[in-house]
Nucleic acid binder design. Structure first.
Lengths: 208, 208
DNA sequence: TGCTCTCTTGATCGCTCAATCAAGTGAGCC
DNA sequence: GGCTCACTTGATTGAGCGATCAAGAGAGCA
């Protein structure tokens, strides 16, 4: 049996993604983990500190638990971006569109999160975007010259989160698929316009 | 003074978008509305029925309260799409990136919402998409032949929701702007490719 | 053996929550 | 006046919440 602290964290991670943070009670976590309240409060001062530790697990697990499996056997950097989106599609599909991205759910669930929580959510998004930006930078020669790869990677995350939100609401993959298809088509057009010339219109500009 | 039922609904709408549904107590609503619990429970059987009524207000208010102001003085159908996104940008800006889209927040806050609530969230998203699709259909001649305007409108909503989520988390407009800039660039490329010919790659395909 | 220190046990606390209810108010109507 | 009925009042209920705490278990070491 794993140590208690790990069991509590794993139980909390599961329940937060299944029921959300606010709807998960400390008693739920204790039942799932097979622990007593005193143990939990021995390791974590408050329920919020459990959330913080879970978010740290996501931050540290993004490569080994998410990217590595999704990218196995996929070498093309642009295909890796869509393989990652495919992993989220698979998560939606295997849960009947119930669970999507736990970070996104928590981000919208907590309207004015305490600064450390907001910071960890921010860090998680940044890590995700940074990895996607890595793919885009590796494919730089196939994108229009001057492409802002960070902004484009942000747009990829936007597509994933927005698609997951709608698919979870409609309980259908259609919205997620339509969003990813739109992004795929955008990438096709970007690569086509990169082949012709570095047309100004093909640049990804940020801000207004 | 407005009738009690309206005051309760307006208070609930405000608080749900400020603090979220779960974090808003019935007592909060009563305080804000200046009403007593008996009055609330005279009009609404449960707190969830208050939420349903608020979601009905959003559904019915999407044109008069959101689209009409955003589209005033904007005739070009594609510019209307971006004027709508601009309205959300403005909401973010004037609230220091605290409040985005209340429907999206509630959609992710409730992980397994009771069927009627999920249905109303779904209907709200559908209404939004239908209006954007109307714009895209009006601009059909400028888009590649065979463009799936419903899928593209879904992608527009995805861009808004995903951008709002990230901007609220980072407390910066950057992610929202990067997302809308990506969508704008996509539309530019779509219109450019429509001018040339109905290239197969320019179609917005759905599914995998 | 006996001391120390980390971790566990589970009853308990004070509080907030959504919801209830009996009593009361007052406009409209006969 | 007297009746009706839609609405209001606000104290109250019981359940569930996050958090506390005194007591104890047990490994590691002298």
């Amino acid at each position: 049996m794993e140590p208690t602290r790990e069991r509590i964290l794993f139980a909390a991670m599961t329940l937060f993604s299944e029921k959300g943070y606010l709807s998960t009670s400390v008693a739920d976590i204790l039942r799932e983990a097979g622990a007593n309240s005193g143990s939990l409060y021995h390791f974590f001062p408050t329920k919020q500190d459990v959330l913080l530790a879970v978010l740290e697990m996501y931050r540290d697990g993004i490569y080994p638990m998410l990217l590595a499996p999704a990218w196995e056997g996929v070498d093309d950097p642009i295909e890796r971006v869509f393989a990652l989106l495919g992993a989220y599609r698979n998560a939606l599909k295997t849960t009947a569109c119930l669970y999507g991205c736990p970070i996104g759910s928590i981000a919208l669930e907590l309207h004015e999160p305490d600064p450390p929580v907001r910071e960890m959510l921010s860090v998680n998004f940044e890590g995700w975007v940074r990895h996607v930006k890595g793919c885009l930078d590796a494919a730089k020669s196939r994108l229009p010259a001057g492409t802002d790869t960070h902004a484009l990677a942000t747009f990829v995350l936007t597509t994933m989160e927005g698609g997951v939100m709608q698919s979870r609401t409609h309980r259908t993959l259609a919205a997620f698929d339509a969003s990813v298809a739109g992004l795929r088509n955008y990438f096709t057009l970007l690569q086509a316009s990169a082949g012709v010339a570095a047309a100004p219109a093909a640049r990804q500009e940020t801000g207004t």
